[in-house]
Write a protein that binds this DNA or RNA. Structure first.
Lengths: 220, 220
DNA sequence: TTGAACATAAACTGTCCAGTTCAGTTTTTT
DNA sequence: AAAAAACTGAACTGGACAGTTTATGTTCAA
């Protein structure tokens, strides 16, 4: 992705970023930007704040990134990737369906409720109007991957005769929603503090209960 | 709400707004602001746009509202109220639990997916950092009321022996989440167009199925 | 019909901030 | 060590925009 407009393709084989140029202090810039964007949002973050935080001159920043928007997109992309990467990993590790779902749900939910997870969510939602591509980027690298993995897991359960699901896509959409019950919106709006692990566990247990009550194959 | 800080309580009995002053063109201002805020978001909307849209002078606007933030808060408050008012109304009208849930869910969900509903959601989420009170205002007048009504409905079902629920608050949180499955986030991020009624009905049916499978009392 | 309250247009102030420029310094390469 | 490339800091530009002021016009109640 982001390959489209890349006229000057400096390093052929391993171009992790395009459009943006690299240099010695590239990572400093990215780290500073990440910190400030996550703290203040897109509008709230000034480029001067970022260069101060990054310990870099403004000219350097602008030698890497053509504008603030692209810098933000880069940061957001990285956050989104790290999200789904450590949030799901291997769900299929157990053949006890309930246990596997519970474990995956806990990891996922703890990320949803983390400071970074919430702030990414806030910014993406708030800016998705202004930057439509950021909404897609986020969706593809987060929710869509969760959906795909869950879908595959559920299909396996069906094939093994453990689950009974007519509409797997719907089910794969329902489960993550159930995991948010009551907590997520309140957190996003800043109406409560981080739930304890016990609280999350209770919600997850409820989610798995409801989910499996419907979809677990009746053993007779 | 918003009564707390009202030092100068001009009209005693019927003070629909406080802090803000009234005048002939008050509604014009509010309508224009509503339109522009809903189109462009808080940051994206300039006061000059609003007065142009409202057909009113800037000075007039500032004679009603001390600043842009309060104007936005007023508009948001009105939107939030209208939200829950037409979104839920009377759920308890039927004693067929499945039918009542389905009907209420359809109304609720259609609002979630409407342009206004989505835009309010986007703006509130995006600005809840900057204006913490707006998050609470929104939550109280929307989701919290849904929760309360649903809670009451479920309790009635339990009392009547139709439902069997250990944790009613959790259940009342789960149901609205189930109704969003797959659709809401995609809509918020602008990744798909408004779902057809049929599509919404399918999701709702799935939500009610899952929900009642767990919580409907087994009749034997 | 007069005067008080309301409204107007337009220019103005002050601030904030993205992005640029450039002369000079440091680092890397050869 | 010399040349090339990367980086710096600080000042500057230009534009956007919230909020104010002023001088003038309109409405309506008494």
């Amino acid at each position: 992705m982001f390959k489209e407009l890349n006229g000057t393709d400096e390093d052929d084989m391993n171009a992790p970023q395009a459009i943006v140029k690299h240099g010695r202090k590239f990572d400093q810039v990215l780290d500073g930007a990440r910190k400030v964007f996550m703290r203040d949002g897109f509008e709230g973050a000034s480029v001067d704040d970022i260069v101060r935080e990054a310990g870099v001159s403004k000219a350097t920043l602008y030698s890497y990134f053509p504008d603030k928007r692209l810098l933000f997109l880069e940061v957001a992309k990285i956050e989104c990737q790290s999200q789904s990467d450590d949030a799901i990993a291997e769900i299929a590790s157990s053949d006890d369906v309930r246990y596997a779902l519970t474990t995956a749900a806990k990891r996922m939910t703890r990320f949803f409720m983390s400071d970074v997870g919430l702030q990414v969510h806030r910014i993406i939602v708030g800016e998705s109007q202004r930057f439509p591509e950021i909404g897609r980027e986020f969706y593809e690298s987060g929710p869509a991957r969760v959906h795909a993995i869950l879908r595959q897991f559920l299909q396996k359960g069906v094939d093994a005769g453990k689950l009974e699901i007519e509409d797997i896509d719907l089910a794969a959409d329902q489960f993550p929603e159930l995991c948010k019950a009551g907590l997520h919106l309140k957190m996003v709006l800043g109406l409560r503090d981080t739930p304890s692990d016990a609280e999350i566990d209770r919600v997850i247990e409820g989610a798995v209960d409801v989910f499996l009550c419907k979809y677990e194959r009746r053993h007779r």
